[in-house]
Write a protein that binds this DNA or RNA. Structure first.
Lengths: 319, 319
DNA sequence: TTAATAGTGACATGATTTGTCACTATTATA
DNA sequence: TATAATAGTGACAAATCATGTCACTATTAA
């Protein structure tokens, strides 16, 4: 390959990687003159790379969104395979990426010689993924996926048991199973993980007002384990004032034995499911200073978060 | 784009299309000298196009299998989409094309800038197609698909109701549904269309000895319609000798009324399902000259085919 | 033997790419 | 307001690359 084509391809990869750069910088990196880089960038621009430049100090070039990759040569078999894999997905209704995939497939098709096109047309009718008849339109898949990837909170209207509720959720991911799309998420309304059916989501938009929680380490691959984790039990100990003992005896006597001392104070020592932490956190916060949770640390952490959140809210309201 | 790169790409498409060509031919087509084309072909070869040449009259160039397409530039979004669509299919066990897809995805990944790779790595765990747990290894998918596309007969060992039978089938196509692969085919053992589960196929190889039937117009999209077609009824009329009447009265009295004339000969006039044609064809062939089928034409056609086949077989055995 | 084919090397010519230089224009900031 | 950092242009010479021509060699089918 000629010196120039080679350089253009490398240049393309470099600008895609840097996103922001100056002509001088590239000239040094590629050991050519500024003039040459300028000419090359003009060429790339002509090839469709979305370049934008600003003069002045701190100016320079930028690649806008919609970058394009350097041209890639696929073998016939690779192209056919990709074509098929993607084509076979067409029955999965409302796939995200739908338009991009179809644009890409058109490119492949365009560069294929006639006989390969024929082969593909033949195979189209002989290879398929049948998805179940139970199939509902799921909008917002892209939005949910985007929110999952970038850790954002989404405000949705959700139809459950035929009533419409409004919730704020932070998606973990989306997946398709027997014809339906699901979105496991953290639900801020229930303060816990919940599984949503995407076709029951009647509206969705990003909600910047709620602060997202850190779900970077939770994804489709490990959320089951984490869920099971939550059914694990943890050692639980709470110290109670006299008032606390009375409240707990009336509210929690069906769950725990409340131990009482001679002076009327007391304690509870038992195990709780991790999944019940949100409930206990709210409850013991409600008891205020009449309860002092000593373990498990997960419960203490949860309470601290709630308290901080509450505090923040009051600050904003009363200042 | 320079004159040369342009020509190289067009040359690539041209050789892929022609498969076989001479240098002189291309030189004329592209209006350049033989020498230039020779140089260009060397370049293409260097780029990975699998060229092969032979000298002498009737010699020339050929492109071997594993052709490569001219390089295609995808946008970032297209690449990511394709990547995902294909990636999400990984749970569909024993997909045909598996190796090719993974090779292609590696190419995409290679040309992606780092931040897009990160994005993909993030999304990998947040987007999926879950396939049902019921999932069995299906080998031979590629072979069956190949047979379907090229109208070939396959000899399989098939496990049905826990017994192993040996069959010759001509696949119509393959499809995946709730975790299993199916292969609707024409079965030469049953002389009818049957649906096979690919995971129950214990061995499969192309069988050149059986002459394939013409299934070019039957594919996944219309085979149901054709099957329903077969449940349609057709007017049926058979003329019977005295011997024929007796045989039919003992064999078919539960299905039809056998009309008898004074001289002992008779006839049956009724309707039959098209799907029963193979059965009746065999039966009336067994009656030899004691039966004369007058309609439906589908039955007559089927009998003619069987007779021709039988005849052919005897010819080969006794000559 | 002949004609058709691929392939090579050398060289002149023409085309393209590159570098240099001298400019203009814009803008942030000291 | 001056200065420095940036993009961008035009002209031209020098360097590199692409092409055609020609004279070859080598192989093979008919």
């Amino acid at each position: 390959m000629s010196n120039r084509s080679q350089r253009l391809i490398e240049l393309m990869m470099t600008v895609n990687r840097k996103r922001k750069f100056t002509v001088k910088e590239l000239a040094e990196e590629f050991n050519v003159s500024r003039r040459t880089i300028l000419r090359d960038l003009q060429e790339l621009s002509g090839l469709g790379v979305p370049l934008y430049s600003e003069v002045g100090p701190h100016g320079g070039y930028q690649v806008l969104k919609e970058r394009i990759l350097p041209p890639i040569a696929f073998t016939e078999e690779e192209a056919v395979s990709i074509f098929f894999a993607s084509h076979a997905l067409r029955h999965f209704s409302s796939l995200p990426f739908e338009t991009e995939i179809s644009a890409a497939l058109k490119k492949f098709y365009f560069y294929m010689p006639g006989d390969v096109r024929d082969r593909i047309d033949q195979m189209k009718n002989r290879f398929d993924f049948i998805s179940p008849t139970r199939q509902a339109k799921s909008s917002y898949l892209s939005l949910l996926l985007e929110a999952a990837v970038h850790q954002k909170v989404v405000h949705i209207d959700y139809e459950s048991k035929s009533e419409l509720t409004s919730r704020k959720i932070q998606p973990i991911g989306i997946y398709a199973s027997v014809g339906l799309w699901y979105c496991p998420s953290y639900c801020f309304t229930r303060d816990d993980f919940r599984l949503f059916r995407c076709d029951k989501i009647h509206s969705a938009k990003l909600d910047e007002s709620v602060k997202p929680i850190d779900l970077t380490h939770i994804h489709l691959g490990n959320r089951q384990a984490i869920k099971e984790e939550k059914h694990k039990k943890a050692d639980f100990f709470v110290e109670l004032s006299r008032e606390g003992v009375q409240r707990c005896e009336s509210d929690l006597s069906r769950r725990f034995i409340v131990n009482v001392r001679e002076d009327g104070t007391g304690w509870i020592e038992d195990q709780i499911k991790l999944s019940n932490i949100p409930f206990f956190a709210k409850y013991f916060i409600g008891l205020g200073e009449d309860a002092w949770v000593e373990r498990p640390p997960e419960l203490i952490e949860n309470m601290k978060q709630r308290l901080a959140k509450l505090l923040e809210k009051y600050k904003n309201n009363f200042v």
